[in-house]
Simulated assay, not measured.
Amino acid sequence: MSMIGEYARITPDELKRALSDPDWAYDFVQELLDEQEEVDQPSGQARCLDTDKAWDAIGFLLRRVGFSVDIVHGEQLIPGADDWGYGPPCYLTPERVRIAAESLPSTSFETLVQGVTPGELSQADVYPQIWSDLSALDYVRHHYESLSPFFAAAAEEGDAVLVWLD
């Protein structure tokens, strides 16, 4: 079974409801995911996004450069939420989404991987264990580069973002 990094953009009112009714949040996000399966949208237009199994490598690389927002795990737990796959969801407030959206474009993938070796990723036990050579980073690049337009659209709309592993 794979661990997939998942994101959903939600309005401030939807966040407020999610915080008071985590079961509603789960059902609502499942509806968003179902709707998105029917329409293929670029990440800058989508309400949901996944980073497939690249989430841990993205998190590792962002921590290396001191990125100020935890866009991989979220920053606040939804109180009382059940497990959405590999634990309960977390969220980023609209303000933290805005900060991430402003910072992502200036944090190029080249900056993230500068000086990274396959051994460093393997030694850090970064999921999934595919780091026998740096060409595996091309897989991570694709998913990392989808985050900037997703967060930019969320920030432009004043949205919060739910984050979970499924």
Rank of each mutant, 00 (worst) to 15 (best):
M1S: 12
M3G: 10
I4F: 10
E6K: 11
Y7G: 05
A8I: 01
A8H: 00
R9K: 13
R9S: 15
I10G: 04
I10T: 06
T11L: 03
P12H: 10
E14H: 09
E14G: 01
E14T: 07
R17S: 02
A18I: 02
A18Q: 08
L19F: 02
L19Y: 06
S20V: 12
D23Q: 06
A25T: 03
D27K: 07
D27E: 12
F28Y: 09
Q30N: 15
L32W: 02
L33S: 11
D34N: 12
E35M: 07
Q36E: 08
E37R: 12
E37G: 10
E38C: 14
D40N: 14
D40Q: 14
D40I: 13
P42Y: 13
G44D: 03
Q45W: 04
T51V: 08
T51N: 06
T51R: 01
T51A: 13
D52V: 12
K53A: 14
A54F: 08
A54M: 10
W55P: 07
A57W: 05
I58T: 07
G59T: 13
F60I: 15
F60R: 08
F60L: 07
L62M: 11
G66S: 15
F67C: 13
S68M: 15
S68P: 02
D70N: 14
V72H: 09
V72L: 12
V72K: 03
H73E: 11
G74F: 00
L77T: 09
P79G: 14
G80M: 08
D82S: 11
D82F: 10
D83C: 05
D83G: 03
G85P: 11
G85F: 11
G85Y: 09
Y86S: 12
G87Q: 02
P89R: 03
C90K: 06
Y91N: 06
Y91V: 01
L92F: 01
P94V: 01
E95F: 05
R96Y: 00
R98I: 06
R98V: 00
A100I: 01
A100R: 02
A100D: 05
A101D: 08
A101H: 03
L104V: 08
P105L: 06
S106W: 00
T107D: 14
S108Q: 10
E110L: 15
T111Q: 15
T111K: 15
T111R: 13
G115M: 04
T117M: 07
T117H: 05
P118R: 03
G119E: 13
E120R: 12
E120I: 05
E120C: 07
S122M: 10
Q123S: 06
Q123V: 06
D125T: 13
D125L: 07
Y127T: 01
Y127L: 01
W131V: 03
S132L: 10
S132N: 13
D133C: 12
L134N: 09
S135A: 13
S135W: 15
A136E: 11
A136W: 06
L137Y: 06
D138T: 08
H142Y: 02
H142C: 14
Y144A: 09
E145Q: 10
P149V: 00
F150T: 02
F151G: 00
A152H: 04
A152G: 03
A152V: 05
A152R: 07
A154D: 00
A155C: 05
E156I: 00
E156A: 14
E157V: 02
G158R: 00
G158P: 00
A160E: 04
V161H: 03
V161P: 01
L162E: 07
L162S: 04
V163T: 04
V163D: 02
L165N: 07
L165Y: 12
